[in-house]
Design a protein around this nucleic acid. Structure first.
Length: 462
RNA sequence: GUAGUCGUAGCUCAGUUGGUUAGAGCAUCAGAUUGUGAUUCUGAGGGUCGAGGGUUCGAGCCCCUUCGAUUACCCCA
């Protein structure tokens, strides 16, 4: 057996990491609950056909498909071989694989809503915190197993939902002290309108993925890319005009200013006007302290978003990029033959949030609350007695441990220090006789005498 | 999937143009010290140099393959 290891892009989480992650989870969940969302969990795996084709070509490639059981069974072997041939041609075959690990939480949620739409009360607000898997090449802030925290509202066209979801971003990031966050917002309708105005309705995706890179590669290279995709000089000029407000005046144009610009630009486009109305509603209704800005280059989830799209960005100094995203999809369950249920949702990328918070040193100290009190082991009879006292403390909700064996005091202190235990309680024969114990504060080194009866109260007051 | 950088003790890293038995700091363990530690002293353990193959009299060092980490592209949280 080679050295034990774990698959690429996956991680073990030690106690301190789990506690910090839980801190993020509970912050997010608390806010979700506060906004009236209810929890949902779905299986780690879905039927392959539920997921295939929902995330675009790239998604199909990165999805983890699960090999069927029994493919080596002699009676299946011909089928398996035929299936394998199909897979080699780039198709999928249920003879070889019919299940896959979930790739995000949105599509499984849509499947759930489609299956249960008769039973759910609409608008249905649910949140979901679960791991997802993508066979992507790991790098900074990118893992093959990571956790998403989603909140979606389905069964409502109201843009108030968008306002609420943006507020949730703000509230969560504020609670986590991630004050440098930024919410970018755009509308899929505006991107569609741009393609229309340019006269290339069927190239929406090509155009938007190109202009999405504006920040990164600059206007010239965006134009080059668009040229390669077959756009004429005239069309490029139009797109450049559209991008002007981003690339020449980044940050200097207010949301209102951008809306004004868009209104003129899309004067003759009904789709464009509809998109502008969405953004206008959101901008007008959101609280002033929410850091939200219109970004007409923002493109994401082009396979299913239809209205507003969101992206939450980490503070610029950490170079992490997106720590959350979301948007409106007006007919998501239509994919599962249940048309007419609109929805809108957002997602938090906990793993990236964790990395950002670590880099910025934002975790509060009291996140690590393991054992508070260590009872020293001063011998067999003494430890037996201490055990009784310890159980009383535990019943009062004070997390305590008894050192597992009688050994040098020195060792017991070291153990306490390593586990960052706040207090040591020493109960030896003398203390048992006189019905008190010694409590040592391991940070200050100060020591007090406390009678047994008041021990629990003593720690509660600390 | 493509490309670059890296892989030596539990951790952080030295290691000369290829040359005896691969080193340091920290950590660990034992002792000084079985009722008051975390600073001091003494000692000890710990490595198939990521794995496999090749070149060479000789490889931690050079070559190939492979795995992993990391960064960038693509895409994304």
């Amino acid at each position: 057996m080679a050295k034990p290891s774990i698959p690429q892009g996956t991680r073990d989480f030690s106690a301190d990491v789990v506690r910090k992650r839980n801190y993020i989870f509970s912050t997010i969940k608390t806010v979700f609950e506060l906004y009236g969302f209810e929890p949902l969990e779905t299986p780690a795996m879905e039927n392959l056909e539920t997921l295939m084709g929902k995330y675009g070509e790239e998604g199909d490639k990165l999805m983890y498909k699960i090999l069927n059981n029994g493919i080596s069974n002699p009676k299946n072997i011909e089928k398996s071989k035929a299936g394998f041939e199909k897979v080699l041609e780039g198709k999928s075959s249920s003879d070889l694989t019919e299940r896959a690990l979930k790739y995000d939480l949105t599509i499984p949620f849509a499947r759930y809503v489609a299956m249960n739409h008769g039973r759910l009360t609409f608008p249905y607000r649910r949140y979901q915190v679960q791991p997802v898997w993508r066979g992507d090449n790991p790098q900074k802030g990118r893992y093959r197993e990571f956790t998403q925290c989603d909140a979606d509202v389905v069964g409502s066209y109201s843009l108030i939902n968008e306002v609420e979801l943006a507020s949730i971003y703000h509230e969560v990031f504020t609670k986590l002290n991630l004050t440098g966050y930024e919410i970018k917002v755009n509308s899929r309708k505006i991107l569609t309108a741009l393609a229309e105005v340019v006269g290339e309705e069927n190239k929406v995706v090509a155009i938007t993925t190109a202009i999405d890179k504006l920040d990164k590669i600059g206007i010239e290279r965006v134009k080059e890319e668009l040229k390669e995709k077959g756009l004429t000089g005239e069309q490029l000029e139009l797109i450049e005009a559209y991008l002007t407000m981003n690339h020449e005046a980044t940050g200097t144009l207010s949301n209102a200013g951008k809306l004004k610009f868009l209104k003129t630009f899309f004067e003759k486009s009904a789709t464009g006007q509809a998109g502008i109305k969405e953004l206008e509603f959101l901008i007008c209704h959101i609280a002033a302290d929410v850091n939200i800005s219109i970004d007409v280059t923002l493109a994401r989830g082009l396979n299913y978003y239809t209205g507003i799209i969101f992206e939450a960005k980490a503070p610029a100094e950490v170079k992490m990029g997106s720590i959350g995203g979301g948007g409106r999809y007006d007919d998501l369950t239509g994919l599962f033959d249940v048309p007419g249920i609109p929805g809108v949702g957002i997602s938090f990328g906990v793993d990236r949030i964790y990395d950002v918070m670590t880099e910025l040193n934002l975790f509060p100290e009291n996140v690590q609350n393991g054992t508070r009190v260590l009872f020293f082991n001063m011998g067999e009879a003494e430890s037996q007695f201490a055990f009784g006292i310890m159980q009383q403390l535990r019943s009062e909700g004070i997390s305590s441990e008894l050192y597992h064996e009688f050994s040098k005091i020195n060792k017991q202190f070291n153990y306490a220090e390593k586990k960052q235990i706040a207090f040591a309680v020493i109960i030896g024969s003398k203390e048992i006789e006189q019905k008190y114990c010694l409590v040592k504060d391991l940070k200050t080194g100060l020591q007090e005498v406390v009678v047994f009866d008041t021990l629990a109260a003593f720690f509660k007051n600390k």
